[in-house]
Simulated scan of single mutants.
Amino acid sequence: MQITAEQGDITTAQVDAVVNAANSTLLGGGGVDGAIHTAAGPRLLEACEELRRTTLPDGLGVGDAVVTPGFDLPAAWVVHTVGPNRHRGETDPDLLTSCFRQSLGVAADAKSRTVAFPAVSAGAYGWDADDVARIALEAVRAWDDENPAAIDAVRFVLFSAGVLGAFERALEG
């Protein structure tokens, strides 16, 4: 699997699946979540509302992932994952690891060969970007070792230069 990091707008990434750093309601929010919902159009919210009415009445749990169509995005799929929120005491790195591993599993199940991730839990959820980068890369590499050739490429598409720097350092290390 090829793993890269770049600064950019994940909503324009030319990949099979983009990962949304969602909240547990799946009904949109700020940051990456809001940007993906806006770019995907109103059918994404309708799909998420249907998930809430049917299979996820209590919302999506921290560390879990679920897929919807990408609708107006260039990506065919949106993989929604809920990262741990340090401000709420969710400090277990295994929860963050699970976000990346579960997202890759869901993307692979949807026959995605290329996946774009944001820095799940960095920013508003209070995780240090260097920790997120290290955990993300360890999780992606471990998943690839267990699922060889399931996904061709993972792109970390990051909004800020500072977060990009953290991922570049992790990739070099």
Rank of each mutant, 00 (worst) to 15 (best):
G165C: 04
T4C: 07
V132F: 05
G123L: 01
R88T: 13
T114G: 12
G59R: 07
L104F: 08
G31Y: 06
P42M: 06
T11F: 05
E49W: 02
L171N: 05
T4Q: 09
E50H: 09
D145G: 13
L164P: 00
V106C: 08
A124D: 00
T25Q: 10
G8T: 04
L158E: 15
A76C: 07
Q102W: 08
T54F: 04
L27K: 11
G162K: 15
D64I: 14
D94R: 15
F117E: 10
T55C: 06
A47H: 04
C48N: 10
D94E: 12
A108D: 10
G31L: 02
R155H: 13
A65V: 13
A124Q: 10
A107P: 00
T54V: 11
P69W: 08
R43M: 12
A166Y: 01
A139V: 01
R88E: 14
A110M: 07
S98Q: 13
G31K: 10
M1S: 07
A75L: 05
A21P: 12
E172Q: 12
D131G: 06
L171A: 04
T4L: 12
V78Y: 09
S112C: 10
P118R: 04
T38F: 05
P84Q: 02
F156P: 00
E50C: 03
D128V: 13
V18P: 07
L45W: 07
T4A: 06
Q2H: 11
P93K: 07
A107C: 03
H80R: 12
R52T: 14
R53A: 15
R101T: 13
A17I: 12
V120G: 13
A153E: 11
L26S: 11
G31Q: 08
D131I: 09
A22M: 02
W127G: 01
T91Y: 00
T68N: 06
A149S: 15
V62I: 15
L73W: 06
V82I: 13
E168I: 15
S121H: 01
V82E: 12
T4F: 08
V79D: 00
R53P: 14
S112V: 13
D144I: 09
D16V: 03
V79I: 14
G59Y: 10
G126M: 14
G162V: 05
Q14S: 14
L73M: 07
T68K: 09
A170Q: 05
A116D: 09
F100Y: 15
V154K: 00
D58A: 13
L44I: 14
V19N: 02
D64F: 06
S103K: 09
N20R: 15
L164K: 04
W127N: 02
L164H: 08
E168M: 10
V67Q: 10
I10G: 03
I135N: 01
L171W: 07
Y125M: 04
A5T: 05
A76M: 11
I36A: 01
D72Q: 15
L51T: 13
S103V: 07
G126R: 14
I10A: 03
T68P: 15
G28R: 08
A17Q: 04
L104P: 08
Q7A: 12
L51Y: 03
A22S: 11
A150S: 14
V140L: 08
V154G: 02
E138D: 15
E172T: 07
D58R: 03
A22V: 04
G165Q: 10
P69C: 04
G162T: 09
G89M: 11
G28Q: 10
H37P: 00
A136K: 01
D92G: 03
P74M: 12
